[in-house]
Design a protein around this nucleic acid. Structure first.
Lengths: 190, 190, 190, 190
DNA sequence: GATGAATGAGTGTTCATTCAT
DNA sequence: CATGAATGAACACTCATTCAT
């Protein structure tokens, strides 16, 4: 029965994210995740090959969802700065609503499981953004430097600032968000 | 009686960093660390109260060493941009020579053990830098925004770029390092 | 799925009692108990929350069994002395057949785990006996002294005499048992 | 230097008794005892062959002290009942002053180490008492039953009643002590 | 004599995974 | 499909004892 399957997958997804947030990545064992999702540990292996597959799949799903939200109302016609600012605000809003997703992403990124992810596939989720950047460079609006450097200055600040472990005192007020975007833009613009 | 052996502490420090780099934080067990350091697991407990103490101590030591290297030849008399650039280059050099230290710091930062660190004490290692930033703001050279935001734009890029897991294709060439510093400065300068 | 196995519980119970008798309470480790019961140490944790739960449960089970045997054919109509003598003989017989149970009880009683037992619940197993004593006091057949003192004189002698560690030379002959009962009765009767 | 030796032995004796009372027999490790006695674990092995020797020696010393206190003012001329009552009261007083000794004795008695004690030697400490009993039997004042049975009824009740683990609610008031002695005497007298 | 360092063998417990139903 | 039982391997840590000074 299809419905039931999807329920279980959703339950496992939710349980995984919740547990990683509550007790941390290392302490999130298969049996605890199964208990949280109200299924048997054995059932988990019906849907995923092993623990790694569950964790990787959870990560990819979060990234997929993130790309959809962030690229909502994406319109290439607008000036580049405006486009980026809209994306930045979407990103900020999504983080605020789903801090649990972000904390999962961070912990996953720093685990050995990251190596098992098909990063090229993830990049494709955000392809439109990459093209905007590319256009900005061509039009001499954005600095022509290594793409990784650009990415680090545009996107990482939000992630770091949203991480309570790294920025304990920081508050995500509207002003701070706008300040940060201004600085990101100053960094990359020519 | 036998005397306490600095060699053993050094061996444990080295083994901890090496293992975390090779197999990851979560998989670095006490017995594996002990074996790598060529001591008995029981001996480890002569020098550290428990696993946490070893990991925290290793982290603090890395941070201490980093602060010394980075603040080498520190001279407040220079223009702020120059001061930051020198620090940035020191940081870059240190990262290049000790990528393993940086990977340890990252993994540690995303572990539950981070909460056990006396962060205020660590901040003091880098106090001179904080004062330069402060002066820059007072002299209206640097933007007057939340200090955490400033830190994220000045220091985090290097860390992220140096992380092969996050930036697989990135190469730390001289040009890239200078490009990145220029962008960091553009971000924070008024 | 496999079903929970009463055999395993019985095996763990037996192994626990046997080992405590053979090597002592302190030396009876989880892994040794598991090996004796021919299960994996991990399996033990399917049936009991932890070592303490196993030991406590074993103790309670022995006490429950003891109460059933000792109160067999219990009849309040008989004279009090006769009632106590029957119980005394049942107790003696049970001890003879299950010296291992008694040695387990003793060692458990002197362990820190005793504090975790619900003593009130155990007392209820022997409630009918307490009432006989109570009646004896009311009818001025038994001395009206602190209940603990009564218990010590009626029941403890059997336990101590049955303990080979405390009474190495003692033999539980019929005569000795009757002698001891006579003395217990002389002690408590008015 | 003799003085120093005796200090260390006394410190080890005290530390052993204290720790067994505070954390239990099983949890009293060599290193904890050494730390409590403020000596090195290695020093312990200068004075005792091993842990067992320390524990056994501590037990024997407690028994020796006990025999001295209990037989204080011993006078064979008095009526047997009076003699026993005096001893009983001495015993009660000593227990009250040194509950820690008694708890040590109990825990030791239920440990495997008991088997290593030279019980015959201990019996000799209390020889005068055995002879009084013997005389009581010869004079047909005390029941002529197995000596172990007599011992159990005369001496064990105090020990059990003094054990908070076995008799949680019991209070050692003067009345209770006299009640208990009366019952002990009733049990053994002809 | 006295010590703290050092350790192999063990502790109780949890793990990711598979088995039998 | 779904499950709880079952487990070998590993975990962090402590033990009684010995070694080197």
């Amino acid at each position: 029965m299809r419905t039931k399957d999807d329920d279980k997958i959703a339950a496992l997804f939710g349980a995984t994210v919740k547990l990683v947030n509550e007790i941390g990545f290392a302490a999130s064992s298969v049996s605890k995740i199964a208990k949280e999702a109200k299924v048997s540990p054995a059932t988990l292996y019906v849907y995923y090959e092993n623990k790694e597959a569950l964790l990787v799949s959870t990560y990819v799903e979060i990234k997929r969802e993130l790309s959809q939200v962030v690229l909502r109302d994406f319109d290439e016609g607008r000036p580049i700065r405006d486009t980026l600012q809209i994306v930045w605000r979407n990103l900020f809003e999504h983080i605020s609503n789903h801090l649990d997703y972000f904390r999962y992403m961070e912990q996953f990124s720093n685990s050995p499981y990251t190596d098992q992810v098909d990063h090229a596939r993830l990049e494709r989720f955000f392809e439109p953004l990459a093209q905007v950047i590319q256009r900005g460079i061509a039009e001499k609006i954005i600095k022509d430097v290594d793409r990784d450097i650009l990415k680090v200055f545009i996107w990482h600040p939000v992630m770091v600032l949203a991480n309570p472990r790294l920025c304990q005192g920081f508050e995500m007020t509207d002003k701070n968000i706008e300040d940060a975007f201004t600085m990101a833009w100053d960094a990359i613009k020519l």
